[in-house]
Write a protein that binds this DNA or RNA. Sequence first.
DNA 1: ATTTTAAATGCAACATTGTTTCATTTAAAA
DNA 2: TTTTAAATGAAACAATGTTGCATTTAAAAT
Lengths: 139, 139
Amino acid sequence: MKATDILQTHDLKKTNSRLALIKALQESIFPQSENEMKSRMSDQYDRITFYRNVQALEDAGVIHRIVVDSHTVKYALNCCETEKKHQHLHKHMHFNCKSCGKTFCLENVDVKQYPIPAEFQAEECEVMIKGYCKFCNQK
Amino acid sequence: MKATDILQTHDLKKTNSRLALIKALQESIFPQSENEMKSRMSDQYDRITFYRNVQALEDAGVIHRIVVDSHTVKYALNCCETEKKHQHLHKHMHFNCKSCGKTFCLENVDVKQYPIPAEFQAEECEVMIKGYCKFCNQK
DNA sequence: ATTTTAAATGCAACATTGTTTCATTTAAAA
DNA sequence: TTTTAAATGAAACAATGTTGCATTTAAAAT
């Protein structure tokens, strides 16, 4: 789906910054950090606008944030970004490679329900698996 | 177990900063942020020393770090901090309350194995559940 | 096509979190 | 008591993220 259509679908203004941000994400099959996106956005990158736009796009359901560790946040397009209001936004887990640092969305592995004590009211479950990816895997 | 004995068991030098850090954690049943510990450590707190000591204590297996979100790290004593070399350091999941912000170690809920594609070599699995805690739970 | 307007942008300035270098201090061994 | 390697703390820096405010712009209204 074209960046401009994604914005339209979600009732977001089509600005150059937002188009560049979405295109940066579309150019990579892996979730990307701000720095990686910055390179791809070249002169369309402004740090403050970037932070405001990732927030706006996340709120609108276009992208999701992945907290890899306390100093690393990555961003990825949502799989079903075509649908304006997806009732049950598909939640998946992530994998991060300790060697190359790449992050992967494991779209096909469902997050499990955990039998936590009844006094806790769970709303979200974030699962991050760390290890070695298919490129770095040491048999 | 007394703070001084914990350090001795792990072959760590007994310094005032480390004793204060461990005592700060022992004073709370919840994992704590740097700021919360800073208050409890009063004049024994120095930011640079703090960062070095949480690193050293984590490496030694005395405490663990919990990344609640990209701006919040909390620290907690390991349950079995008495054992010097626990072969299988008990890994548990965490719960974070969206209302009061408290973090809980869910010691009795085991982290599940996920059927991720074979080309990924998993080493760790971090699970963070977010919702409302027993104090904030809205029936 | 032009005007209007609310939203988006970008600058300055600031806040928080974390790290590195290096001289000084200190716990613990000799 | 002396020695020494580790730990500390000051200064300086780096990365990440936020807020206020004047300016620009997308898109709706005229």
